[in-house]
């Protein structure tokens, strides 16, 4: 089963300290290397901070463009992994190893199964 791990961080001005930033990078690298070696890494990528976000909402058939993320939340989406795991327990184990403080301070990981596109039948 493929799982997407959504990384939620607490964005702060200036982000984490250089030392903290280096630790986070290393932790990501370890997870990426290990999952790649096991052949279960499908994707992993960071996102730019929410200050770069644009939200598009179609209203009356016209796109309504607003600056920023669609909702103000305490924690912001900062990146994702897609891993092919045996089951939820394996996914939880990996998720626990993914750092979440990349844009400031620690947040959480949301795990969502990816069922694939619905088939027409």
């Amino acid at each position: 089963m493929r799982y997407m791990m959504l990384i939620y961080t607490r964005e702060s001005e200036g982000g984490p300290s250089p030392e903290e930033g280096a630790r986070i990078k290393t932790a990501h690298r370890v997870v990426i290397e290990e999952t790649a070696r096991k052949g279960i890494l499908l994707a992993a990528e960071p996102l730019s901070p929410t200050s770069t976000a644009t939200t598009v909402r179609v209203q009356n058939h016209k796109p309504l463009i607003t600056d920023g993320p669609f909702a103000e939340t305490k924690e912001q989406l900062a990146g994702y992994y897609i891993l092919d795991c045996e089951n939820l327990d394996e996914a939880i184990e990996w998720a626990a190893r993914i750092p979440t403080a990349c844009k400031g301070s620690a947040g959480c990981i949301e795990i969502r199964p990816m069922p694939g596109l619905p088939r027409d039948d």
Partner: peptide, 14 residues
């Protein structure tokens, strides 16, 4: 079913 919560006894570490 959908998140595939395993049907097994957890390992000793958990």
């Amino acid at each position: 079913q959908e998140a595939r919560i395993p049907y097994e006894v957890p390992g000793p570490e958990r």
